[in-house]
Design a protein around this nucleic acid. Structure first.
Lengths: 192, 192, 192, 192
DNA sequence: CATGAATGAGACTTCATTCAT
DNA sequence: GATGAATGAAGTCTCATTCAT
């Protein structure tokens, strides 16, 4: 009846990312998501297992992207501070390239089922641990002051994860600029 | 006799803050909140108008607290950088002193009714504007480098608003220490 | 609003027994049951946990009745054949006194959740075991011929459990007559 | 080449018999049946008209089998008690030879559409009437005592229709043995 | 024949809310 | 104040069925 739709599953994921990020998991109904694809609520279930699965898929694909972006950098043969710089750029790149998924990743994991929430938390901690390691290297190497590692890591990550709140692809700043400014501010501080 | 009769309405607000912050607005039902007070769902309506009102009350009281904490500082006769420092301390104080309300303030405003969401957004922008003003003063005065004002403001606010994710009243850091470390890092950067 | 309804839960159980027995578990919807009480579907949930629970309650109360009716007889100090006779009378009494519940007990246990179905089967086997014991006593005592015990037990139970298909309280036979005729036929056979 | 091409329609019927008998009509979905044939739900409709038709077909083929098995016996020139014996053997033969269909016949007719249910009930009553006639002959001839005809008929039929609950083709008893034991018990009773 | 995608109806269930008691 | 019972709306999901490919 309809035109042959390519990769319907992807469309579903993207619509869900958009609605979950805009309204939140519970405020975005299955019907809303289906409506975005111009089909009826029940029809979604030809493509997904459950709403919970949908959230899980978004959130774990997002996690995969973050890990994939950072992994090569961690092993790179560079001075620590350069590795951290590039990791920040990579992370910002994933966020700006997948704004809605990143927002869901940051805000909606609470709505996962118990088992998955635990699983998610573990991966998130692992990711945080990688950043902390990069930062720790900078400190041990002497480039950075002996700040509280955990605290500083959260400063970096939280400032990046807030980006989705105001970044627009058609806005004035490129992801590179954002990353550069962020790095500059966090590394050197605001003081002249 | 005079058993210290704690205001029931306050109990309701506190229970709602807790549940909204833990599970999110939609995942915390009116019955859940009532259950926390050991009464039945319907009985809550002797104390509140509606669930939406409850959220609004939490969120606007939280906003009031932030404004109240900062207002005297803005007008204080101090060098700009000192004003900013104290504003940060005040803001951190409100967060750590009202962890759950602060979490609701940060995360659940999306679930307000349309009209109230607009109203909320305006206040939030106003608050952000105050911080931006404090920061701008530091730049104009020459203490701070000529960074992107909006960007730097968001860096400060976002790093503070993330605190509720890990701060615990019985943890190792006092609010003052948190504020001090945060200020130190943001003002001077991580670099040695 | 409505007149104070006494024991609403009982009314729910009775309506469910009726509808489950008439149409089967799946063909009788929650709305149908609610409609029988002149309330809306969702309102049932003030009285039950779930449709599955409702079935379970009916089925286990029915099982309880059967056990309660038979237990004193098993321990009675009577000749075996008399015990069996009275057990049959008791069982027929439970069926005719709770026609619809008995029908649900016999036919709808398949629709229980896995865990409960297992639990149910165990009790059912236990009950069958009791009858088998009574019958075995009659054989060992010499009153009955050395028939296949399991087979004969099923003959007795199945002929009784079929009663709900045709018995009507306002019909021509009392439960006692039914039990007497049944006993007569099974004990002495059809042959002159 | 001529691979023995088993009729697809038969496979559908057999899968449906199995699933309807195991789970009940409503709990066995069209998709379940299709899955048993390793095709998708919609594809079943190349072979059936509707789920209701499927049930009807199973149930009426089963009825046909019962009638076909008994018809020649009713007209046979034998003493009444012998005719009854053979009818029982024939009926047991149909059940044990078509266990699942027999179970569906006994339990799922309630789920037929209204019109068909009525039609089915008429045939069922007719069949019961035949058995009742056979039994009546035995009474009139003087072989059997003057028992309640309807009651005795139901005793015989119900004990047979319960067989599917425990009979297994690979079990210890042949259909002939089952029929013989059943006849023995019902004709002569349990008493020594 | 089989499939994937869709549909409309309806299933069970939860929820915020109301109100007589 | 609190409760039990009810409601209407909505939510997620399943199902029998259809049809273009």
């Amino acid at each position: 009846m309809a035109v042959p739709k390519i990769d319907r599953k992807d469309q579903v994921l993207r619509a869900a990312e958009r609605l979950f990020s805009q309204r939140g998991f519970h405020a975005a109904s299955v019907r809303d998501i289906a409506h975005a694809l111009q089909i009826k609520g029940g029809s979604l279930y030809a493509h997904i297992e459950s709403k919970d699965d949908l959230l899980w898929e978004i959130v774990s694909v997002a996690a995969d992207r973050f890990f994939a972006a950072i992994s090569p950098i961690v092993k790179a043969d560079l001075v620590p501070v350069e590795r951290l710089k590039r990791a920040i750029l990579a992370h910002v790149g994933v966020i700006t390239g997948n704004l809605e998924a990143a927002a869901v990743y940051s805000n909606e994991w609470r709505n996962l089922s118990d088992r998955r929430r635990t699983q998610f938390a573990a991966r998130r901690d692992e990711y945080e641990g990688i950043f902390r390691g990069l930062l720790g290297d900078c400190i041990r190497e002497g480039t950075f002051a002996a700040v509280d590692e955990k605290f500083a890591t959260l400063l970096i990550l939280s400032s990046m994860n807030w980006i989705y709140q105001w970044y627009r692809a058609d806005g004035p700043m490129t992801p590179e600029e954002i990353a550069r400014k962020l790095t500059e501010m966090i590394f050197n501080g605001l003081r002249r």
